[in-house]
């Protein structure tokens, strides 16, 4: 085990148990429901947020890439898990006070962080400021899980790299399937949905 990983997860998780409000906040942020919904809402909202036709088309293009990359980052994480089954910190380190349920899948790379960074990278391409907000949200999500004792910091880092690389790869995949995606956007315009 990487000694820095060990020290950081023990230090961050060691902060728990002092202020109940912070522990509860970390548990809420770390849930499987809040932040994934935030990333989905970001993609959903971006679809409609363009002020002009050009901006709307650009946003919708990146929403389609973002949604695809969220799905593909899940696949990438599963493939990496097949190659390396890293045990969760709570299962290895006695000092960890677990604040989350006992996850059964490997910890590297952090799947929720990969999803967050995949959505963030797509949003960043459409609108820098919005992208930074999503990157921030994904980072907080990852850190809340380190605080809860279910991820190492390098899991979070790995998840971020997987998320960004998947989005980058998805842009090439998108080019491969042109003009199908453009026709899909045209269809949504025909249905007054895009």
């Amino acid at each position: 085990m990487n000694p820095i990983d060990r020290e950081v997860v023990i230090w961050l998780n060691g902060l728990s148990g002092n202020v109940a409000l912070i522990d509860d906040l970390a548990r809420v942020i770390a849930t499987d429901y809040l932040m994934p919904l935030v990333f989905s809402l970001a993609m959903f909202g971006m679809w409609f947020a363009g002020r002009s036709s050009g901006e709307r088309l650009r946003f919708q293009h990146w929403v389609l890439i973002g949604i695809s990359s969220i799905g593909l980052s899940n696949v990438s994480v599963v493939l990496i898990n097949l190659a390396w089954e890293r045990t969760r910190p709570y299962a290895v380190l006695d000092e960890i006070e677990l604040l989350f349920y006992r996850a059964t899948d490997p910890s590297f790379p952090a799947n929720p962080v990969a999803i967050g960074f995949a959505a963030g990278a797509a949003a960043w391409m459409a609108n820098r400021k919005f992208g930074y907000w999503l990157f921030g949200a994904a980072l907080v999500y990852g850190l809340s899980r380190v605080y809860a004792g279910v991820f190492y910091p390098t899991d979070v880092l790995g998840g971020a790299v997987v998320g960004v690389l998947t989005t980058w790869g998805t842009t090439y995949l998108h080019r491969l399937f042109q003009p199908v995606t453009n026709l899909f956007v045209r269809l949504t315009r025909g249905l007054a949905l895009g």
């Binding site: 522990d23 509860d24 548990r27 809420v28 770390a30 499987d32 429901y33 349920y101 996850a103």
Partner: peptide
């Protein structure tokens, strides 16, 4: 409340 929703699938 903080932990109530943390249920493994």
């Amino acid at each position: 409340l903080g932990a109530a929703r943390n249920v493994n699938d």
